[in-house]
Design a protein around this nucleic acid. Structure first.
Lengths: 138, 138
DNA sequence: TATGCACTCATACTAAAGTACCAAAATCCC
DNA sequence: GGGATTTTGGTACTTTAGTATGAGTGCATA
């Protein structure tokens, strides 16, 4: 926000400066109005480019919004989703079991359910499908 | 590419038009050079904004630039990388073997080598590591 | 209360995945 | 031509992953 204000201030100043230049070249006998115009065009073109770049560069960071409705829609429970996240991080069933303080059997059950709900045959495919459904962060 | 050419053509035409406008306002007795200059500034500012938006909107699609140097650095061969890509798509060793017209044994060898080179214990972890190394598209 | 759902866990399998070790072609490069 | 690297493939084995089935617990709610 502060940057936007700064850029606009610079924009106004540039406008005033160019007005003065325009007047001067007019008074001093039409030295080169065209060059002044070209300069104005270039300056404001560059300003336009810069402003846009700064505003658009912030978007790519929060690009992956997790689709919570989709998760519900697929009937994936909270615990199952938790397991899914751990799978996508590359953990084995045993490792996930340790992190969630449950037995490996439990994780296997969750994984099996996840594979059905995500229409996958393998956990790697589940990751891929979940990503394309925007259920997992890219 | 074609769009870029079109935009630049439009840009040049706009420049010429504004030159003419500038001359006219000068000849017709200093009607309002300042207004003309303001118009030029606004027009080129808008053009700058538009060009940037079009060029930056294409990036989010191929936002993940694959780091080819990293692949080399890790000593991952072409064939191994090919296998890695298929793994990330969620294919089994057998499926990869069929797609690449080689035996499953060969794929297993490639996968084992990949796991060492990517410092992973499982294929899911290999995917995750490869992604964080920007070797695979997100 | 009982009915359903989520979570838990176990057993017994089958199927993949991954390791270790070896080795023959094929390709590349000096 | 010959060495290095890549690609291919095999066997034998261990480890994970995944399936099928059944069952107990807790919790919310009709």
């Amino acid at each position: 926000m502060k940057k936007t204000i700064f850029v606009f201030s610079a924009l106004i100043i540039a406008l005033l400066v160019l007005f003065q230049l325009g007047k001067y070249s007019y008074v001093s006998g039409n030295l080169s109005i065209e060059i002044a115009i070209a300069a104005i065009a270039i300056v404001f073109f560059v300003i336009g480019v810069f402003i846009n770049r700064k505003t658009l560069r912030q978007k790519p960071e929060n690009r992956t919004t997790i689709n919570h409705e989709k998760i519900e829609q697929l009937g994936i429970s909270e615990r199952e989703y938790e397991v899914l996240v751990h799978i996508s991080k590359g953990l084995s069933n045993k490792e996930i079991a340790n992190r969630l303080f449950v037995s490996e059997s439990t994780i296997k059950t969750h994984v099996s359910n996840l594979l059905v709900k995500l229409d996958a045959k393998r956990r790697t495919q589940a990751i891929q499908n979940a990503r394309s459904l925007q259920i997992l962060a890219a």
